[in-house]
Amino acid sequence: MKRSVLLVALCLWVPMLVQGVARPLGDDPEVEARLKALSSELRCLVCQNQTLADSSAALAEDLRQEIRALIAQGLSDQEIIDYLVARYGDFVRYRPPLKATTLLLWIGPGLLLAAGVGGLWWVLRRRNARLSDDEEKRKEA
């Protein structure tokens, strides 16, 4: 009993020994996590080679605040992205949306791989067939 009292006392004591505990930048860690995830897929329009998460441009700071506010209003991630796209265009999305003009972009890699592997298969078979023909001709000659 005594010991547990002592433990409780110690626990109360410890935070006072340390001078201070750093606070996360945002107040709500959940909001911050969502902001982080969202803003690292969005492009800053001022420093166009940085994500909204990394940029220190004033507009990026404004937009991060705006996203916090939108999260607080209860918008979904998709709604927030739509909100930004309506203002700045698809350019803000580092992950391009799937639509008619970007279809080739998204299926291209798969097509390339399939065409490559299929092409190699076909070339190898034909090549072996031709080499066999050549050998037979040589035998006949």
Binding site: L45, Q48, V85, A86, R87, Y88, G89, D90, F91
Partner: peptide, 8 residues
């Protein structure tokens, strides 16, 4: 390349 056409 830096010019971003407006969706508006």
């Amino acid at each position: 390349p830096r010019e971003v056409p407006s969706p508006l």
